[in-house]
Amino acid sequence: MSVDIFSDIACPWCFIGKRRFETALAALPFGEKVDVKWHAFQLDPSLPDHFEGSELDYLTQAKGMPAEQVAGMLEHVTTQAAGEGLKYDFDALHVANSFTALRLLALAKERGLGNEMKEALLSAHFEQGVDTGSNEALQGLADSVGLDPAETAEVLASDKYSDAVRADGVRARELGVSGVPFFVLDNKYGISGAQPSEVFEQALSQVWKEIGGENLQMIGTTGQDGAVCGPEGCN
């Protein structure tokens, strides 16, 4: 069974969704047979390579969200992340354009290191205060997951994989994706948001049964626990 996941490395709910999805996979007897592919969905292409200010500054200035609302949102998402064993640090976070990081992720996918690179990028951005808009920092992250240093340097010094990142965005729009994370199961069924692991487990089990000839019961995926990030911000 295939699962295609659309997300951005600058999306806090995407990291939470990744953990919850992985928890579901680990609980399933067929989890190792699920082919997971990561796809790019850039939330803010207009963001400069380096934004001078905090995440709170960015969301209030660039998105026009009230500071009190943003502060509450960041507190909520930090609490949700902690529930998945993640230690978000929005005070140390560097707001940066994610396009180069997504290009590097495209290289890692080709080399069979997509999940490792995705994990490294998300952790660096949300937990470690690493500037993921810095080529030097990205080179170090790529080295840490085992990518060839020379090949990484070539990608960072060029526009390689730009078309791949844009193609993912086009595909997402064709599927009607407006917020991430977004999970496509077996090229047929979509799950929107960082759903509880139990929802992922049930959905994966039902699709697996369908592949074996049983009918799929569609799952409703609305509500606060299915939080996503979109171009206008996160909920």
Rank of each mutant, 00 (worst) to 15 (best):
L102W: 01
I191Q: 04
E210V: 03
G190Y: 07
N187V: 03
E198K: 13
V180I: 15
K188V: 04
L104V: 03
F183D: 09
S158Q: 14
T152V: 08
H94E: 11
L141Q: 11
V170Y: 06
G169S: 10
A153H: 14
D186K: 04
D89G: 08
G169Y: 10
S205L: 07
A92R: 05
S192C: 10
L156I: 02
F99I: 07
G114P: 00
E119D: 15
V180M: 13
Q202K: 14
K188S: 08
A142P: 02
L204A: 13
F126E: 03
G193E: 06
G114Y: 00
L113A: 14
D148E: 08
K209L: 12
S158C: 09
G176R: 14
L156H: 05
A120V: 00
G83Q: 12
S205Y: 02
A194V: 06
L113S: 13
S178W: 12
E151C: 06
K87H: 15
D159Y: 09
A82I: 02
V155W: 04
A150Y: 08
A157M: 06
A108V: 01
E116Q: 13
R111I: 02
L147Y: 09
I211F: 06
N135A: 11
L107A: 13
R171P: 00
V170G: 05
N115Q: 14
Q195T: 11
N135G: 10
L102K: 07
G85S: 09
R103Y: 01
E201A: 15
S98T: 12
G193F: 07
G140I: 06
L138K: 02
G133K: 11
A81N: 09
A203Y: 11
L141T: 02
N97R: 12
G212V: 01
A124P: 03
A124E: 05
G83L: 03
D163A: 15
A167Y: 00
